[in-house]
Design a protein around this nucleic acid. Structure first.
Lengths: 354, 354
DNA sequence: ATGAAAGCGCTAACAA
DNA sequence: TTGTTAGCGCTTTCAT
């Protein structure tokens, strides 16, 4: 079907080697010859076959990326960052999603390995005991984790999740909250959520407060609503401030609280994690720990490129996070069931917007 | 480095053909032989090289996808749908983003073509005059558009954007709005936004209302705020209902209005387009035209698979959209500058949540 | 500056 | 059932 380098060579009356040199700019092609080759290429609409090239050079100029979910903006932003720097370096990006499932992680890696990508950027459930990661290690292929916690022997780009969790606890306490809680995705499928919890617990403990209620939920809305139903059965003992392990969850929690006529932040403050951009546009603007997702993607990509050049060094980047106190978090005030209904109707604006 | 089929053959004392047959399940491998091959494969950690296979079979078992932006959840959802069905069919997904830029579209296609993907799913700025599309056409490669309007000669999966725009106008009018407006991304880079406008104008016109104000904005927040500054200089003549060409824009518009102390929906109703999931969680819940993005992705993927089997037929799927009236849209009421400030402080709850 | 030819890892006739 | 072998499209020595 498509023209090959041979067709071009024939038409231009040169050897395939010459065509190859012309195409790749491996110069040494005389002006006149170049013209002939160029003409032939255009006539035949020749487009070099990267598969043939890859087989010959044993480099595909493509990298793989595995993320838990494409639909979570935090990962999409990272993909966007990776994609940006990789494209400018002439690499293609093969994307796979693991759906937070360890088996899927494994098969995704398998596929990428068979496709002979030059390197992989990925987020796994838990690097400490990841079959995916050990498969990768013995494959010798360069790889860099993203979002995952630093773990002996692996490169990664992330933020200090423990410190961030601690920051959240401190912020809540500073606002006067005494009963704190955390709603999180499954810790088993997120080492960073676990780390955030660790920091959060530390902060609460240091302040001498009661250990916070911690609830794990899956990825369906009904689980969130069910969890809140239990947690807020008695408003007098329920947490007045809730830390959610990610923004999507936080948004869902806020929605759920509203449906239960619990005002945010008047009755309950909510702080998320990630800093996805919709969070700052919504009302109340989401209080959250912002991690620089796109930049994290770029950084991971650059690390991978380094490895591709300089061999298997190890890179660990901890980028800095920012605690952004949006409108969804405010000073503690008494949770009084009696005024709950009227309060929920008015979203106070004592706190400034900007 | 990595073991090849030859190494395996040698170790198992069989021919490469036998190994190939074993690996591909092209049966006809006797039990005893199979055992030996299996053992050899494991000892050597042999992993078939898809590059070699592709060169031989002239099929890469991979498809390309080009979307305007990875960070817009509406596209991410489509990617997710495509990814799902493609993976179950054993295909890899190479993702590229065009950033709404026609030049980037072109180079993305070029790259995918060189990589010899088996097919492409893409959203272009404007199919009617797309160089990307014509390049694709003459390449003979199967492809299917997604989100783009039906256009002679091309396969696509989308919703009826004209009808949807019309629905939005009707809904606003039914709510009593008389002065309508539309805020849209650049029409030049979105045929669907243009189609939505067409339907919207028709609806307004049919009702005998004044032609709506239509403002095009770029993708930066400040442009939105600038646009609203002009549009809402005089509240007495400004639109009481705003149609935004996509949800991200709508969310941004709502945020911007709030900052201008204009209450949504008490003073201005806002309706978006896409139905991204965060929209339904936020407050006010976003009124919007829901398109089944993930299902659209799946459908496009299935179309592509059909083409891969049955050759170049043409598939056009118009999936149905749903106008979901969330809390961001409500009955018209007088825009009275005098009460604007107090009103903006209270978000009324006369309209039901569910 | 250009050409000839040997592979890269695999599949698929064709033989046996 | 298994083996032999000729490519797939390209790069890259090694000659010229």
């Amino acid at each position: 079907m498509a023209a090959t380098i041979r067709d071009v060579a024939r038409k231009a009356n040169v050897s395939v080697a010459t065509v190859s040199r012309y195409v790749n700019g491996t110069y040494k092609v005389r002006g006149v010859t170049a013209e002939r080759v160029k003409a032939a290429i255009e006539e035949l609409s020749f487009r070099p076959n990267a598969v043939g090239r890859s087989l010959s050079t044993s480099s595909t100029k493509s990298i793989g990326m595995i993320i838990p979910s494409i639909s979570n903006p935090v990962f999409a932003d990272a993909v966007s960052g990776v994609s940006d720097v990789m494209r400018t370096e002439g690499y293609s990006l093969t994307l796979a999603s693991s759906n937070y499932d360890v088996t899927d992680e494994l098969s995704a890696i398998s596929t990428l390995l068979e496709n002979r990508v030059d390197g992989i950027i990925l987020t796994v459930a838990n690097p400490a005991q990841s079959k995916a990661l050990s498969m990768l290690e013995k494959s010798q292929l360069p790889y860099c984790m993203i979002y995952n916690q630093p773990t002996a022997g692996h490169s990664t780009v992330t933020v200090d999740n423990v410190a961030a969790g601690y920051d959240v606890a401190r912020a809540m306490i500073r606002l006067g909250h005494q009963r704190l809680g955390m709603i999180s995705g499954k810790f088993a499928s997120s080492d960073r959520a676990y780390a955030r919890r660790t920091g959060f617990l530390k902060g609460v403990d240091e302040a001498g407060l009661e250990p916070p209620a911690i609830v794990e939920v899956g990825y369906e809305d009904e689980q969130v609503s069910k969890a809140l139903e239990n947690l807020y059965a008695d408003l007098n003992t329920a947490p007045t401030a809730l830390f959610c392990s990610n923004d999507l969850l936080a948004i869902s929690v806020i929605g759920s609280l509203r449906r239960r006529k619990i005002a945010v932040p008047d009755q309950v403050s909510v702080i998320g994690f990630d800093g996805i951009s919709v969070g700052s546009h919504m009302y109340p603007a989401l209080a959250t720990v912002v991690q620089p997702s796109k930049e994290m993607g770029r950084t991971a990509a650059r690390h991978l490129l380094e490895m591709l050049l300089n061999g298997q060094e190890q890179y660990v980047s901890i980028l800095s996070h920012i605690l952004r106190l949006g409108e969804s978090a405010g000073p503690a005030c008494k949770l009084d069931p009696a005024v709950s209904q009227p309060l929920s109707q008015n979203t106070s604006s004592k706190r400034s917007t900007t």
